[in-house]
Computed example of a mutant assay.
Amino acid sequence: MNPTTDVPVPLKVAVIVGSNREGRFGPVVADWLLGRFRERDDLTVEVVDTADAALPTALSHSPSPEVTAELAKVTPKLAGADAFVVLTPEYNHSFPASLKALIDWHYEEWRAKPVGFVSYGGVSGGLRAVEQLRQVFAELHAVTVRDTVSFHNAGASFDDAGRHRDPSGPDAAAKAMLDQLAWWAFALRDAKAVRPYGS
């Protein structure tokens, strides 16, 4: 809380763009999502793009200087976040290797923080990727929020300028997901200020 106004300090949300493929559709969906954040004064946002950090899928307890340099591009953003929104496509009924690498190279950064999901794909809208990610984040002591935003046949849902052709449904879904994310993030931030997680 801000002691002079009793207004909660806005939450820091890291939006993770999960695909690093050439020609990916993720940036279009990310731009749409960032527009939803601009409508809120309780959330601030920082983008963490898996395309900006070349993290290997093989983990090491002693990362090389090259890996350490790549981690430096993303780890402070994850550590400083109160909450996360993971933006993922669905590849072969799952989520991208670049996203799994980003997740697996971190641990403390996820603990006792909420995670929301925005997914996109063909007929499934990326929902199978989201269901698998819920299990991954549960193992990392994160809290996933129930409501998601999913785009079925995503390429046809947006016009050439990146605007959604029928925004009322996705906008309502995004509000519900962000409302839940904010509730959990405020609750967990306040709880951790009283007692560290796991104590």
Results as ranks from 00 to 15, higher is better:
R40A: 09
R195I: 15
G35K: 06
H93E: 13
T148E: 14
D104T: 12
R195C: 15
R40M: 06
K12F: 05
T5Y: 11
R21Q: 02
S150F: 10
A174G: 09
P114Y: 14
L99N: 06
G126K: 04
D6I: 08
E109F: 11
G155V: 10
A53V: 00
R111Y: 13
V86P: 01
H164N: 03
A182E: 07
A174I: 07
G18M: 03
K12T: 15
L188N: 04
T4R: 10
D179R: 13
R128V: 12
A138V: 00
D52P: 01
A161K: 14
V67M: 06
F95C: 01
W183Y: 05
T5Q: 04
A161R: 10
T75L: 03
V143L: 08
V143D: 08
G162F: 05
P167Y: 00
G169W: 15
I16K: 01
A173L: 09
P196T: 04
G26Y: 09
L71C: 05
A182V: 02
A51Y: 05
A72Y: 01
L34M: 01
A53C: 09
W110T: 11
L181T: 01
G125R: 12
H152E: 11
Y107M: 14
N92E: 12
A58I: 15
A161M: 11
G35P: 07
F117S: 04
V17T: 07
L178D: 02
P10G: 01
G169N: 14
D82Y: 03
L43D: 08
G23K: 03
T75H: 02
S157D: 09
N20R: 07
P170L: 01
T50A: 06
F84L: 02
D42Q: 15
S60N: 12
E139F: 13
D171M: 04
A161W: 15
L178N: 01
L99A: 00
A173Y: 09
P56A: 00
W183F: 06
M1D: 02
L43K: 10
R128L: 14
R195V: 12
